[in-house]
Design a binder for these strands. Structure first.
Lengths: 340, 340
DNA sequence: GTGAAAGCGCTAACAC
DNA sequence: GTGTTAGCGCTTTCAC
């Protein structure tokens, strides 16, 4: 447990002043080359590293971003996170991670805690409970306190901030339209995220596609629920009617459950049933048949979010206008849908 | 962008000294109730929060743990991470996350960067490149500098530190034995992680089980490679021989590729082929048939790691002995293996 | 070319 | 019961 080297120590051991050492190490013009060399060599020997906390305190900023993720086990968030991490790191920022576990209380508490000079800004996706209860004051009060926020994916219009989203409505429209194009007449919509902004938008996209193709919305084909057995049973009942030839699943759970239950109930995918889902690419490829998905470019969402935040943090003038970046999705056709 | 409240400001506005405010807010006996009440009320009004950086600097600790993850997209690591996060949070620690991307250089650089007073200790799993090149000095020099490290899953004997691992050898033995018990005679071993400590141990467990059951090790049944198409082809060739009735896959990729290729090549799982893999539970259940796995209790690994580190950080005496905690795995029988 | 001193926000030993 | 002061490690202005 040897104490870390400080300017003070080095100064003392070398018989110079603290400020000389500081200047020498930052290659100041004021210091003679000889002294600089001597000090630098000694510092390297002692493995000197400037203390971050002291610097932070001095400059009143931390070069750290707080990232609040609703659930890191969701691979979408994990991917966005990796995008944030990489971009932030490149631009010299550290990441403090906190997981809200979809809880409003936890989200509030974490953000307040980190807003004590621990981070310069936040990147977050709204916790489910927060979005359901529409309790957004804590965001606004944090922004008012001078800490900028960037929201991604799950956002709200009630907070003025930078945002990065996917064109959920259009993506859902395209996915549904694709199912129609390959001949589906009875397309079910499956969702466990109807309480989220993104869930609602995807539902809208589905409805819009049906409408434009003059297909009546059939309420029996719309299944909403939680990730539980009751939901599974509903899917099975729906499949049992054999009146479905397409499934549009707006979340990973719905997509994979539908696939599995259909296969178990003797459906031939994609012959009898075509499935498209919002889901993670890596695992979708591992399924048999592989799942056609709406790819959300998660790492890019992370990258853009980090850049938005850091741009704001480093901006000369304050109060640049808030931006909303919309990332284009892509329909990845795999084996769970017929080819055109 | 209103400036955050500081002790100094509050003191000035209230016409008292800084230390009075500080003491009042920490409920010191020295201050009269009346003053305390007054100060507390005013502080609450101003939404005062003590500045973390200043406290950290003062106390020479950060209450922050640096977590170095090789790859957050690997759900095992994501799960361990969530265990770490939750436990650390409960005990009052923040998490700074860094992703090594399996690179030695990056791992070194990240750790050195964070070792400048940004974190009190590290929790990490060794990057693949680090483990392959056996380049472990940076760990030792960080430990020597006074920052403790806890390693999990991918570890090395060449670094003295606390460790949390799974009983890889025994788990692999049990998995192989189970395949033998349900009647498999020709058990293939698939691995894309033979360069990792855990990969080697799992291979040992496989060999031990064969040996004890007097089954000759057949080199043609052992497939090692990277996550690429060449590896996929090798699997397909192996399956084409139809000389395999069991697969023990020591990593997620191998397990899922084997399943998929077997299904595509007309195998009936588990009738013709039994598959067990080290893999994530959530997704294994989503496959059809669901995959029997060795469950590694990832969140518990994270929890134990965090506790080990924090125990050491908060220990009164220095140099408690280093501990290695071994977590028991569980064989989760699903539909990719016959029932006994 | 080098050093002294102030200050970032906080705590705590020590005065009064 | 309240205030003064020093100091955590660093940078930076100003003096010499």
């Amino acid at each position: 447990m040897k104490a870390k080297a400080t300017l003070k120590q080095i100064a003392k051991e070398l018989g110079v002043s603290v400020s000389t050492v500081s200047k020498a190490l930052s290659d100041s013009q004021e210091i003679s080359q000889a002294t600089k060399d001597k000090i630098k060599e000694f510092a390297a020997l002692k493995n000197y590293k400037p203390n971050l906390m002291a610097k932070n305190l001095k400059y009143q900023k931390t070069n750290t971003i707080g990232v609040i993720i609703p659930n890191i086990l969701n691979s979408f968030f994990a991917k966005v996170f990796s995008g944030i991490e990489e971009t932030a790191r490149k631009r010299g920022y550290n990441i403090v991670t906190a997981i809200s576990n979809e809880s409003l209380e936890r989200e509030k508490q974490l953000m307040e805690m980190l807003n004590n000079g621990a981070v310069d800004g936040f990147i977050l996706s709204i916790a489910e409970e927060t979005q359901m209860t529409k309790n957004f004051q804590h965001y606004n009060s944090i922004i008012k306190s001078g800490t900028p926020i960037v929201m991604f994916d799950r956002i709200t219009d009630l907070v003025k901030s930078d945002k990065v989203i996917v064109d959920d409505l259009d993506s859902a429209f395209d996915a549904t339209q694709h199912l129609i194009n390959i001949g589906c007449k009875k397309i079910a919509l499956l969702s466990t995220i109807d309480n989220l902004s993104v869930g609602k938008l995807r539902f809208e996209g589905y409805k819009k596609a049906l409408e434009l193709n003059k297909i009546d919305l059939d309420i029996n084909l719309i299944l909403m629920g939680d990730e539980d057995e009751i939901y599974d049973q509903k899917i099975e009942v729906l499949l049992a009617t054999k009146k479905v030839d397409g499934v549009f699943a707006v979340d990973e759970h719905s997509a994979t459950r539908a696939m599995k239950l259909a296969l178990q109930n003797g459906y031939d995918i994609p012959k009898d049933l075509n499935v498209i889902g919002f889901a993670d690419g890596a695992w979708s490829r591992r399924l048999t048949p592989s799942l056609s998905t709406v790819s959300q470019h998660a790492p890019e969402i992370g990258e853009k979010s980090a850049n938005l935040l850091i741009d704001r943090l480093t901006a000369k003038e304050e109060a640049i206008e808030y931006k909303t970046i919309v990332i284009k999705t892509e329909l990845r056709q795999r084996d769970s849908t017929r080819k055109l």
